[in-house]
Write a protein that binds this DNA or RNA. Sequence first.
DNA 1: TCGTCTTACTTGTACCAACGAGTAGATCGG
DNA 2: CCGATCTACTCGTTGGTACAAGTAAGACGA
Lengths: 263, 263
Amino acid sequence: MPEPLYRQLAERLRARIDAGDLRPGDQIPSEAELGEEFGVSRNTVRLAVTALANEGLIESRAGRGTFVRQRRTVTVLHPLDPSGVPPGPKDAFKSTLEREGVKPTQENFRVEFRRATAEVAARLGIEEGDRVVVRRMDRLVDGEPWSRQESFYPVEIAEGTELMSPDDIPRGTIRVLKENGHAQVGFRDEINCRMPTRDESGFLGSPPGVPVLELFRVAYSEERPIRLTITVYAGDSTQFAYEVGDVSARGETGRGSRDREDG
Amino acid sequence: MPEPLYRQLAERLRARIDAGDLRPGDQIPSEAELGEEFGVSRNTVRLAVTALANEGLIESRAGRGTFVRQRRTVTVLHPLDPSGVPPGPKDAFKSTLEREGVKPTQENFRVEFRRATAEVAARLGIEEGDRVVVRRMDRLVDGEPWSRQESFYPVEIAEGTELMSPDDIPRGTIRVLKENGHAQVGFRDEINCRMPTRDESGFLGSPPGVPVLELFRVAYSEERPIRLTITVYAGDSTQFAYEVGDVSARGETGRGSRDREDG
DNA sequence: TCGTCTTACTTGTACCAACGAGTAGATCGG
DNA sequence: CCGATCTACTCGTTGGTACAAGTAAGACGA
C-alpha cells in the first residue's frame, strides 16, 4: 500500500491551503462533497479532516461546516529584570502586551484556598497538603481568549493583603508583594508544552489538537520562594522570547505580531 | 447525550492509568477486549484510544498492541551568559545535559548550502534567497532520539572555517566563531510549540499526537547576527528553564541530579 | 537443534448505514 | 412586514463488516 487514502486526501487538502486556494476563514467543502469529489466514503474523509484538525490547520463546527483556521501569533518578550517590577505604572501583563501593539484585558478573577499539590509544594518549598492562596484569572488579547493564569502563594504571604481580593490589581502583584516585605530578587521560568485538557481547549477556543504552552514561574525573595505562577497559553498563537546580553545588532524592531507560518 | 460513549471510555482508561492500575510500558487491553468489556463497537473503542494517543498518553503499534507511554522529562537550563561560551571545555549541549545526569550523544552530522527562507533571512539580517551554510545534526540522550538541530550561518562567516566540516566540534561552535573574529555578545531565544511534521515525529519516536518544542536562537556579535539555530525537541520529554537574578532561596535541586560538579 | 510455516492475534484502513444535534435559509401564516 | 416553522444541510456519534499488514508464538519438519 503506497499511502492510505485518507492521508492522500489530507495532503491534497493541505496543499490547497498552503497554495492559498483555501484562505484562512474559508469554509472547506463538506464531508459529503469531499467524499464525492475524491470517490471515498465519508468515514475516510473524516479521517483526513480530523488529522488536519489535530494539527490546528482547520476547525470543524457542528452544523456549520469546516473552516481554515487563522490565529495571529503574539510574542511575549520576558524581561530579565530580577526584581520583576515592570517598567511604567502598570502590571507586567499589560506593559508586555501593549508593547506588542495589542489590547490586553483580564477577567474572571477568582481567589481561593487550596491544598498544595506535590508540584506546587516542591516549587514553593512547602509541604504537600499545606494551604495555599490561589489567584486565578483569564487573559484576552483584542477580546480573544489567550491564556489562563493561576498564581499560588503561601498563606502567610498572601493573607491579609490586597492579594486576597478577587479583582484586578492595576499596579501589579509584584509591587504588592514588595510593599509587604517580600521583594522579588530573582525568578525561574520553566517552559513546557503538552496537549490541552478539555477545559483548556474550550476556554482557549482552540480545537483539541492544538497544543498549549505552559509557563511555570517561581519568584524568589532573598529568603524564600514567594509565588508560583502557572500560565497556560494557546500554543498556536503564542511565542516566548528571552533576550540576553547585547542584541543591538538585531536590526528588526521588536514588533511581535505576525501571521502564522510553517506547515 | 450527557457524554459520548467514546469519551466516557477514554476517561475510564485515563483513570486506570492515573491510578497506576496501568503502568508505563504496560499493554492496555486490545480493542476487541475493550469493546467487549464496555459493550461498545470497535469503532467507538478506536475513537477513545486515538484520543488518548493524541494526548501522548498511550501509543499503538500495529500488530503488537497499545501501550502506556512514559518518557522522562529532561530540563534544559539555558545559561544566561551573553557570550554563550559554556563552562568547561565541552560544547553547550554536552555540558548542559551532563549536568542533568544523562548521557548526550550526537550523530548524523551534515553540512550543506541552502537559500535563506524568509524566516531565516529576517533573523540573520540578510536577504531572502541569499546563500547560507546549514549545519545539521541529531541529538540523543541515553541513546534515545531527543532533538534535531539546524544552525544557519551567513556564508561569509562560515566559509573556510571548521564550521564547514560535517563532524562534531567538541569544543563547541561558539568558540570557533570567536576564534574567527565573531565573538558572541548576546542572543535572543524564541520558543514556540506546534504539532510535528511526519518526519519529525518519526525521528523523535513520538506518536503524531505529541507536540514539539521549537527553539529559535539568534546569536549576535557586536556588529551583526552571526547564527540562527533552530532546534526541535519532543515536547513530552523536554522542558526549558531560565533562571534570572538571585534564586539561592530555591531549596530543591530539581528533577535532574545537579549536585555534582563536572570536570 | 534449528529454521520454516502456520496460526492466531494485534492494529490499520476502508467501506456501509443510521440517527442526533446544531445551523441557516426558505417558506408560510399572521 | 415580521415572526414562527419547516427543511435541507452541516458535523457528531455509534453501530456494523471486511480485509490488509505487522507480530509473536507454537507446530512441524529436516
